[in-house]
């Protein structure tokens, strides 16, 4: 169910997995990472960020690995890594298809 549910990730979901792909982080670090990486294009409200973390944790895409002060640290699980890589490949394929279509025209 989880894999089917997140078979296509939304932009915030993809960026969240991207942020954890580069190492374990807490919610605030994730928020800052997404903002920086997307040049503030991708907005992730605090409510949504924690709802997403909770949902990803329940679905086994990420796991809680400890605390840093009062901050909970998360990292990707193998399932989360796979979801991120699958989505990355899908996006690359989309981009390649678009380029090919552009060249054909």
């Amino acid at each position: 169910m989880a894999r089917k549910k997140f078979s296509t990730l939304t932009e915030p979901m993809f960026y969240l997995l991207m942020s954890l792909h580069s190492g374990k982080k807490c919610g605030i670090d994730i928020s800052e990472y997404i903002s920086r990486r997307s040049s503030e294009r991708v907005k992730l409200g605090p409510g949504t960020l924690y709802a997403l973390l909770s949902e990803f944790e329940q679905e086994g895409l990420i796991k809680y690995v400890g605390v840093d002060g009062k901050r909970k640290l998360y990292e990707l699980t193998p399932t989360g890594e796979k979801a991120y890589n699958d989505e990355l490949m899908r996006l690359r394929q989309c981009l390649a298809d678009a380029k090919e279509a552009e060249n054909d025209e």
Binding site: C26, I28, S31, G45, P46, Y50, A51, R71, K72
Partner: peptide, 19 residues
Amino acid sequence: CDVVACDIPEEKKELYERS
């Protein structure tokens, strides 16, 4: 979301304040 015992995590509060 994530409201447990009438409260939310400290970290979430901090992020709210930053926003």
